[in-house]
Design a protein around this nucleic acid. Sequence first.
DNA 1: AGTTGTCAAGCTAGT
DNA 2: ACTAGCTTGACAACT
Length: 299
Amino acid sequence: MRIGYPCINRGIGCTAGSTFRLASYSETRLIQTVQKNLDCLKKIIEYNVENGLLFFRISSDTVPFASHPVCKYDWIGHFSGQLKEIGRYIRDHDIRISMHPDQFVLINALKEDIVERSLAELQYHCNMLDEMELDSTAKIQIHVGGVYGNKDQAIERFVERYASLNQALKRRLVVENDDRLFSLSDCLKVHHGTGIPIVFDSLHHACLNNGETDREALMQAAQTWRRVDGPLMVDYSSQQPGHNVGKHAQSIDTTDFRRFLENMKGCDFDLMLEIKDKEKSGVKALTELKVFQSEEYRK
DNA sequence: AGTTGTCAAGCTAGT
DNA sequence: ACTAGCTTGACAACT
């Protein structure tokens, strides 16, 4: 099992997803910002290797406005060398990579322009991972999308749109169960229509489910991943006590995490910790995992 | 220097 | 028909 965290490292002193306002867009500004972001990305990944954290989510803001019409610059060409170098480092250290475009990416939208912008955004994510020369285990995770008054039709539209995607995108795209609209069993329907792998989000599953236990749900999700996709990806977070259901915890609850590990014993997956203090919880989780594994080994 | 409103993009539920 | 909430960090405008 590889353990990781998304996008931001709070201790390292740089950000790999720094952006700017659309109003202040310029080619110079773009190049400056991407340069800073990639430099920082490299530092974060090096930090992660030193600390045994071998799963990382790269920020969607690495190249600000990459899919916006305002951006006509060939950033792939400009940063090709640096992207390939980061990619080589990632491969050499067997690091698992994911990306997670946000809520605006809706390939099952009713409006054609929303679909087009979504595809452009996905293509940007895909282009970056491709330029890094990462294999098909590096994934881009999205949600199924909106319901638009009819869930079956919404799923059907997802299936149809997926069929029309290019091969480069298809090999990276995965869907994640969400907390309000599309449960794991809804995602499995999408899988049956497309073959797309399902990311299992444990907190979302606690918010919205069809009675499956966490272990059952995780095993069902695991079956949607083929060898070329790599191990199942799992998003894990504790609930922040006393807040709205679904709010991510400030720091990992090691007791809860320990329970989770015991619960999922024998399953193979990579774990993304969606927890606010990021790498701190990552290190704590890794320590807990090692203790757990050595105890299991002695049994 | 510190604080706070606002940011490309959208959905859903509630008024 | 309209808006708040979702979740979130950080930019940028303003004290």
